[in-house]
Design a protein around this nucleic acid. Structure first.
Length: 447
RNA sequence: GCUCCUGUAGUUCAAUGGAUAGAAUAGAAGUUUCCUAAACUUUAGAUUCGGGUUCGAUUCCCGGCGGGAGUACCA
């Protein structure tokens, strides 16, 4: 498996941010503002939209005063907006390689990447290969030109290039604008080709939200039409959206829950929760306490998201804090920490003695659950569903907690049974750690 | 308008067409001289509505009602 990340680093949205920064930024930098680069650029994206909407409103009412219908007036206002025109002009210049624009673009992108890197690092996310749209869009453009030459696509009078998908029961799709610049689809065609060229892969999976179902349906058809044998086999793993209580997140309008803020808040919450619990751990240093809070906070967040079937939309209320009790990451982590505590005190496990132990109901149930782990992983892989792993590890941990509550390991007088329980505990801990690792969650040795 | 997704306790989530629909949380009641109570136990509470297929439907099909998304020379 090759983990790739595709960064959409060019196009209209990027130009909007650059334009807004030029107009209203007063030369602000991450250094001068103390803001993360991606946040700073995101702010100007929102800023652009604010001015744009105000401009459209004004134009619209002027057109309406001239006697136009409301909808028509709005449409015309959006089309004729000078701000949007400026953004498009900038895009044309960018594609032409205009020195100033490219230099500004490079500077601002570097800010963004630095911000992304920081977030990925905190999150514990990494990639084998990162594709930048600014590199791949030219390949896409070339493919579109080839398709045009072969008569697979067609050019309109205004110069724009389109694919007619009505034979597939879909609409017509724009591939190149009238001014010659590329769109999202152009770039994605190029990126797909490069990914197949760069790696000997038999399948390509796009992990992208279900709001883009249509886009990937079209992409697959276009790749197939271009004669790429794998075109119709690309997999769009379409995940559900995280919804807020009052609707969808919109980056343009700034109504988003920021990942950095959320992670920081979770770690902070974990620290507060730990404060009264950690009294039990008398010999703990500040560094250790911070590390526990980090693992528990991020564990709670990741588990919260991953335990839900990825295909379904889920609801997240930022006002309510994510739980640390019940079916949660910390619940799983806590069980792990308790087992590790026992194992630390016990020392080596006598495997030979364990073989001669008798087994009670709870132990049997636990063993049975442990043996199903491989098949759970296999199924989760087939279904692309981390949720299945999360649900399994939750069941396992619940089973272990009952066992832990009902029977003592260290105080068991029968040495055979004690050895068996230690072995059982060690196996459980290993599987918890393995499952959590698959979910990208770290378990603390103590908490 | 057209297309797609979706509807399970108050709330957030589970359930290859199969037995009494399973958890968590919020609510009520308990458990600590005992390996970490971020735990454990008990209790009450749900399949949107109407048809159909089937021996059997939360699951599959049709319709109504509710929620979300897409339908851009945005990504």
């Amino acid at each position: 498996m090759v983990k790739t990340n595709i960064v959409n680093d060019r196009g209209i949205p990027i130009c909007k941010s650059m334009l807004a920064w030029l107009k209203w930024g007063n030369g602000a930098t991450p250094q001068s503002t103390g803001k993360k680069g991606d946040h700073l650029i995101g702010d100007y994206y929102v800023e652009f939209d604010k001015h744009y909407r105000a401009e459209v409103r004004e134009l619209q009412s002027r057109f309406e005063a001239e006697g136009m219908q409301q909808d028509a007036a709005k449409e015309r206002a959006e089309k004729e907006s000078p701000l949007m025109k400026e953004a498009h002009d900038m895009l044309v210049k960018w594609e032409q390689g205009d020195k100033e624009i490219r230099s500004l673009w490079r500077t601002m992108n570097d800010w963004v990447y630095a911000g992304f890197d920081e977030t990925y690092r905190t999150m514990g996310v990494g990639f084998d290969k990162i594709y930048y749209e600014s590199d791949t869009y030219l390949v896409g453009k070339q493919k579109v030109e080839e398709g045009l030459a072969k008569g697979l696509f067609y050019r309109r009078d205004d110069g724009s290039v389109w694919a007619d998908l009505t034979a597939n029961g879909l609409d017509e799709k724009l591939l190149l604008r009238a001014d010659g610049t590329s769109v999202y689809m152009t770039q994605d065609i190029g990126t797909a080709c490069l990914r197949y060229q760069d790696y000997p892969i038999n399948r390509m999976v796009y992990v992208v939200g279900n709001e883009q179902d249509y886009h990937f349906q079209v992409l697959s058809i276009l790749l197939d039409r271009l004669g790429l044998p794998w075109g119709k086999d690309i997999v769009h793993f379409s995940y559900g959206m995280v919804e807020l209580p009052n609707g969808k997140m919109k980056s343009r309008e700034g109504t988003v829950v920021d990942a950095d803020d959320l992670m920081a808040k979770m770690i902070e919450d974990a620290k507060n929760v730990s404060a009264d619990k950690v009294e039990k751990l008398t010999d703990i240093t500040d560094d250790e306490a911070n590390e526990i809070a980090r693992r528990v906070g991020l564990g709670a967040l990741k588990y919260f998201i991953l335990k839900v079937d990825p295909k379904k939309n889920m609801l997240f209320d930022p006002e309510k804090s994510i739980d640390f009790n019940g079916n949660t990451g910390p619940f799983v982590q806590y069980t792990y920490a308790r087992i590790k505590s026992i194992l630390r005190k016990a020392g080596d496990v006598d495997l030979e003695a364990a073989k001669h132990a008798t087994i009670n109901d709870k132990e049997q149930a636990l063993i049975q659950l442990l043996t199903t782990y491989p098949s759970v992983i296999e199924q989760a892989g087939k279904d692309f569903s981390p949720a299945q792993i999360a649900n399994y590890v939750y069941d396992l941990v619940k089973e272990y907690n009952q066992f832990y509550h009902d029977y003592s390991v260290l105080n068991e007088p029968d040495s055979n049974i004690k050895a068996m329980r230690l072995l059982l505990s060690r196996c459980t801990a290993n599987i918890i750690a393995d499952a959590l690792n698959l979910l990208g969650i770290e378990a603390p040795e103590r908490m």
